[in-house]
């Protein structure tokens, strides 16, 4: 149908190595039967060996995008291709691993049995021992799923995504409920998967995770891509939307000062002022000038701290409107 036609147009207009494109959403619109427009002309591609983080507030369309890519839902218009084929085909699913936010897996099956069942779905599964090692499940293999801690459950779900040694992984909030050590362990695993040429699509609420892991971040809101790029590009884009082209120099200044917000806003370069009881947060596009003026005006100023905007600030700037 029209979806396939659009795809072939895309191929002709984007000549670079289509074989490296593992998954794509091309101009996808998804309107649910109840009228909700979840995705609005959204395009997204995943390349071999690439980790892409999909960021967005709740209801932005992240899970709809992932559902379409997993073939659990069909687009209203546009096309969804995985390995240049229909995501709903079994041959496509054999090359895909999925980790979803699952409230409870069957609780009275052992970890070992869960992995065994999923390995059985694939003709060439990942060796059992490798899965257990990668998901850090040594020692809990004989426990029932229901007896595991939240972090262990999450790691079992990660193991199930790895079971088929897939070329493409969908990880929906993979490190929710993990302690710092396990989280870093899972990050290392995800990185090594990408290093072995696998493509990973990650949705996360932890901006730190997207920053640490992703080669490319795609920020979506209200079903549209707001911006995409490397983590540092996204950060600077976020800064530029706060109203200044000299985005690279945007800094966040935190200090304890007696000056009133109106005085602070009059200082050159200051774009926003947020006064809390003890700490005042100032964003400035000309940090040096702002600081000079600030210190002159308030000799009693203390607890000074200057930082670059984090991904979180960029994210908030991009998605708040």
């Amino acid at each position: 149908m029209s979806a396939t036609l659009q795809r072939s147009e895309d191929l002709s207009s984007h000549p670079p190595a289509p074989s490296d494109t593992v998954a794509s959403l091309s101009r996808v619109t998804k309107r649910y039967a109840n009228g909700v427009l979840a995705l609005d002309d959204l395009s997204l591609t995943l390349q071999r060996g690439q980790i892409v983080a999909l960021l967005g507030p709740n209801g932005a369309g992240k899970s709809t995008a992932v559902k379409l890519l997993m073939g659990l839902s069909t687009p209203t218009s546009g096309s969804v291709r995985i390995f240049a084929a229909d995501p709903r085909l079994t041959t496509t699913r054999l090359r895909t691993g999925v980790m979803l936010q699952v409230g409870r897996a069957p609780e009275m099956l052992r970890v070992r049995e869960h992995i065994h069942i999923f390995r059985g779905y694939y003709p060439n599964p990942m060796p059992y021992a490798d899965i257990v090692r990668a998901a850090q499940l040594e020692g809990v293999e004989d426990r029932m799923f229901g007896q595991l801690s939240g972090g262990q459950k999450q790691r079992v779900l990660f193991a199930l995504a790895l079971a088929g040694d897939p070329d493409l992984l969908f990880l929906d909030e993979p490190t929710v409920g993990l302690d710092i050590e396990s989280r870093r362990g899972m990050w290392a695993q995800i990185r090594s998967l990408a290093a072995r040429g696998k493509a990973v699509l990650l949705t996360t609420h932890y901006l730190e995770e997207a920053d640490a892991l992703a080669h490319r971040i795609v920020v979506i809101n209200k079903g549209r891509v707001i911006c995409e790029g490397t983590p540092s590009e996204v950060k600077s884009l976020g800064a530029s939307t706060s109203g200044n082209s000299t985005s690279r120099s945007l800094k966040i200044i935190r200090c304890t000062t007696t000056l009133a917000a109106t005085t602070l806003l009059a200082i050159p370069g200051v774009t926003t002022v947020e006064a809390a009881t003890t700490l005042t947060t100032i964003t400035s596009t000309q940090p040096e000038a702002t600081l000079r003026e600030l210190l002159t005006l308030d000799p009693s100023l203390h607890s000074l701290e200057v930082s670059s905007p984090a991904l979180e600030d960029a994210f908030l700037a991009l998605t708040s409107n």
Partner: peptide
């Protein structure tokens, strides 16, 4: 119904299991 509400059914559907 429980598999459905927990999202387990969706994971099974996304897998190559018939």
């Amino acid at each position: 119904a429980m598999d459905r509400s927990a999202g387990w059914l969706e994971l099974k559907q996304a897998s190559p299991m018939p």
